[in-house]
Design a protein around this nucleic acid. Structure first.
Length: 886
DNA sequence: ATTGCTACGTA
DNA sequence: CGTACGTAGCAATA
């Protein structure tokens, strides 16, 4: 069999190549959003991808050292002893690299007490014997000894890992003048600095090769040591033990016991889903594309992949029909409304243009023209509770509602299903879901082309994909997540859709006045700021600010960030303390004014012809279960400052409504902490009904509640809230601008009185480490991958997130449950729910309904969860959002 | 034009 | 060295 027909086995030394990559690529250019360095991973993977493309290995493995200790260090403690501490930026990259390799279907091997090179040696030797074309990739010169017929070494050059030099037998002879198997003899004589193996003094490569040619082997040289003259000869005689020891240590072991042999290393399919996850985490966009390209090519080429595709998954023929025929089709395919159908609403410019319906075996397209009688059966099915599976049901529901078509029976939404499985991931397009979950390709028309070259798939086909994705996802959901989907998220879809469609009335006049006022302030402040520094700069440019503050004004450096030194508000406050300057204060004022102008502008430009603003709630937008709001974001409307409150005062009841009503949970997260921890002190605090921070302050400072000073209360409040976020003593001291020691004492005193809280917070993380996820009171899960990470930053970030998630997530569950019952209760009323701001709901109240609404809201919010502490609800009313707050 | 980063508004 | 978001402008990339 010729070489090209032989299977190719590629074996890689993971550590040595990763390390080479680490030093070849700039550390600072490869940092992901979590602060994890990724240069070694990037370099390694980009090399591996090249190898996959160029060498097309049929079999593949990457070997890693388990630790820096092996049988060699036991034999010679100083082995590799010159290697200093692993650079901190390298730490943590190997586990991530292994994760990426796993996703790419690459097997990784390691063996206690052996080095990766021994694994390579074993596999190479066996592979060559078993008829493989073996490629060894290593940055360790000792692997030269492995080169033989059928085994080629790929060795990185000085420039890094992007170029590998190919050493077959001839190349070794050409480079070193000796046969590959003689190389260890040379190395034994010369020594290997990187392994801390000292050679015979004055013996370099030239001398060693000369001797070797003369005497054939190290043993031969030593036998004839007496014949060698001069200082070198004496050195050889004196130091022959070194050479013998070196030779013993640099011999690679070719019979390491491994769980797999070369034949077991056949390439495995690339797990595209997992690859996306890992590469997304690493922020490797280009590499991801390259891997997916390889995956696609391999999927297309491999006969096995074709056989894997179930025959039932050919896209069903699309029936286009209306009227009686359609009615019959729906009845049959949905088994009289008992079986779910995939549903896709086609729209063009906001108008409904058609419907795609699908069972697993058949699909139908229904063109739509408003007001025709032919669609009675379809409309009846749409409005009914007959189960429908959708992608992005809220948007579809809104489109239908705009067309006057009621929709009921939303039984699955693939966006929500995918989110509950992986709440940290951003919602995907339908096309991506098809690709990620089914491994198939959805045709989409090119939005950039006026007359698209590729026609998009029919809504009917899309509906079919939606149905299949839904079934796939449903199968993956655990019972808790499923109940969150069925009992909270899906019922919430029409509620949120209604709130979005209603919108909230905004008084543009008020916003306009504020903008001009703020604009004036900003301009005045800016010119005064320019006067202070004697020149005009862009105050919005952190770069120019850095020049002014640190170069021109010579201020002390603040904490550093990726573009230099921070100029954020906290840093500026620090500067003001150390190095007072009028410019600092003017800058802050300018920031303040322009920020508010921006927020006003984002709201104002969203006001529609009827004076209302319609936000869009992103139901699958947060990792904890919260709802996000965008376009415009109505969950970050200012409130803390006077001007901020004036922005809120622009939100008014619509014409015909009496007043706005706001209802918010008081300290819901602390109450959830009390419930989940079962801390008797905290529970008592809430049951007493006294001011929480005063109560806690009295306990901590051992004073009577009435003697808790405002300073004490501020400290307690900051700590209580901080606890739920995993705040450290250091962070607390920063925030309160107190000594770290005082912050430590404060926390110690807190936990002395409320010990169950500390136990709970600790246990949450411990449990999450075991389970790999956290759970809210109502069963919502959030998975965590980094709780065991060897990278401290990643690990501690994950731990804080894990500690916070059940608290924030349970609060999200609770207000959502309240929204559902309230929506049901006010269904027959004129009053409407308008906004949700995490722990607050905003309503507009129809004349005569205030008392009834207040009662409903109080009752439903107060009983949305059964906790060991009461859920306190504060209700306020007023002619605008600010006035309605309390 | 798109993307990353900084900064900052809310709960 | 405190969680969860969205938006905006700047500056560097394409």
């Amino acid at each position: 069999m010729s070489d090209s027909e032989k299977p190719t086995l590629l074996v890689v030394d993971g550590h040595s190549l990763a390390f080479r990559a680490f030093y070849a690529l700039p550390v600072d250019s490869f940092v992901n959003r979590d602060g994890q360095h990724t240069n070694a991973i990037h370099g390694f993977l980009s090399m591996l991808i090249l190898l996959l493309q160029n060498e097309k290995p049929t079999h593949l493995a990457v070997a890693f050292d388990i630790s820096r200790y092996s049988f060699r260090t036991r034999e010679y403690a100083e082995y590799k002893g010159t290697r200093g501490e692993t650079p901190p930026e390298f730490v943590g990259q190997v586990p991530l690299l292994e994760e990426a390799l796993k996703a790419m279907g690459v097997q990784t091997l390691s063996k206690e007490d052996f080095e990766a090179d021994d694994i390579l040696a074993t596999l190479a030797t066996r592979g060559a014997a078993e008829g493989f074309n073996v490629l060894v990739v290593s940055g360790d010169r000792d692997t030269i000894q492995l080169v033989q017929p059928g085994v080629t070494l790929l060795y990185p050059n000085a420039r890094g890992v992007s170029e590998l030099k190919r050493y077959d037998r001839d190349a070794v002879v050409e480079r070193y003048g000796i046969e590959p198997e003689q190389y260890p003899d040379i190395a034994a004589l010369v020594g290997e600095t990187s392994d801390n193996l000292i050679g015979v003094d004055k013996v370099g490569e030239k001398t060693a090769v000369k001797w070797l040619k003369q005497y054939g082997s190290l043993d031969g040289i030593l036998e004839h040591a007496d014949e060698i003259t001069g200082v070198v000869g004496q050195n050889l005689r004196d130091q022959k033990d070194r050479a013998i020891r070196n030779r013993r240590l640099n011999r690679l072991v070719t019979d390491v016991e491994l769980p797999v042999g070369p034949a077991d290393l056949a390439r495995r399919p690339i797990d595209e889903r997992a690859v996306r996850d890992v590469f997304d985490k690493l922020q490797f966009k280009t590499l991801l594309e390259r891997v997916l390209k390889i995956a696609a090519a391999e999927r297309g080429d491999a006969p096995a992949a074709v056989a894997d595709t179930p025959t039932g998954h050919d896209i069903p023929v699309i029936h286009t029909m209306i009227d009686e025929e359609l009615a019959k089709w729906i009845r049959t395919q949905s088994a009289d409304g008992t079986k779910p159908l995939g549903l896709r609403v086609a729209t063009q410019g906001g108008e409904v243009t058609g419907f795609g319906l699908a069972s697993l075996s058949e699909t139908a397209f229904v063109p739509w023209a408003a007001g025709r009688p032919d669609y009675a059966a379809l409309e009846a099915w749409l409005a009914s509770d007959a189960p429908k599976y959708l992608y992005g049901s809220k948007a579809q529901l809104k489109a239908l509602a705009s067309a006057g078509i009621p929709l009921g029976g939303i039984a699955f939404d693939t966006v929500l299903g995918a989110w509950l499985l992986r709440p940290g991931a951003k919602p995907e397009s339908l096309e991506s879901q098809v690709y990620d979950y089914l491994g198939e390709t959805l045709q989409v028309s090119d939005p950039n082309q006026l007359v698209p070259e590729n026609e998009g798939a029919s809504p009917a086909t899309e509906a079919w994909y939606v149905l299949r994705i839904a079934e796939y996802l449903a199968d993956k959901l655990d019972a808790g997540s499923r109940s969150v989907l069925d009992d909270i998220e899906l019922p919430l879809v029409p509620v949120l859709a209604g709130m979005e469609r209603t919108g909230i009335t905004v008084n543009s006049g008020i916003l306009g006045d504020l903008t001009s006022q703020l604009g004036q302030t900003a301009a005045e402040v800016a010119s005064r700021a320019f006067a202070e520094i004697g020149r005009e700069i862009n105050l919005g440019s952190p770069k120019q600010l850095q020049e002014v503050l640190f170069d021109q004004l010579g201020m002390p450096k603040t904490r550093s960030n990726k573009t230099g030194f921070s100029t954020d508000a906290a840093s500026l406050a620090d500067l003001q303390e150390q190095n007072p300057h009028p410019f600092l204060d003017l800058l802050l004022q300018h920031r303040d004014a322009t920020k508010l102008m921006q927020i006003i502008a984002s709201i104002d430009k969203a006001v529609d012809a009827t004076g209302r603003v319609h936000t869009t709630y992103e139901q699958a937008g947060s990792a904890t279960g919260r709802i996000a709001s965008n376009d415009p974001n109505l969950q970050n409307v200012p409130i803390k400052t006077e001007i901020g409150r004036r922005i809120r005062s622009a939100f008014e009841p619509s014409p015909g409504f009496e007043t706005l009503l706001t209802a918010d949970y008081s300290q819901i997260e602390m109450r959830i902490m009390a419930h989940l921890s079962g801390d008797p002190g905290l529970i008592e605090a809430f049951n007493e009904g006294e001011d929480l921070h005063r109560f806690v302050g009295a306990r901590i400072f051992s004073v009577a509640p009435e003697d808790v000073t405002p300073t004490m209360r501020t400290k307690v409040k900051a700590m209580s809230y901080g606890l739920a976020y995993g705040l450290s003593a250091f962070g607390l001291s920063k925030q309160l601008r107190i000594e770290t020691s005082e912050a430590k004492e404060l926390m110690a005193d807190y936990f002395a009185r409320f010990g169950a809280v500390r136990d709970y917070l600790r246990d949450v993380v411990e449990q999450a480490k075991v389970d790999g996820y956290t759970t809210t009171i109502f069963g919502r899960r959030r998975p965590f991958g980094d709780l065991h990470s060897s990278n401290r930053v990643l690990r501690e970030n994950a731990q804080r997130q894990a500690l916070n998630s059940p608290i924030q997530g349970s609060a999200a569950d609770i207000i959502k449950r309240a929204m559902l019952t309230i929506a049901a209760d006010i269904d027959g009323m004129e009053s409407r729910m308008l906004l949700q701001v995490h722990d607050e709901l905003v309503f507009e109240v129809a004349p005569g309904e205030l008392d009834a609404l207040t009662e409903i809201v109080r009752h439903r919010m107060g009983t949305a969860a059964d906790l060991t502490v009461p859920l306190e609800v504060q209700v306020g009313t007023g002619p605008n959002w600010d006035a309605a707050a309390h």
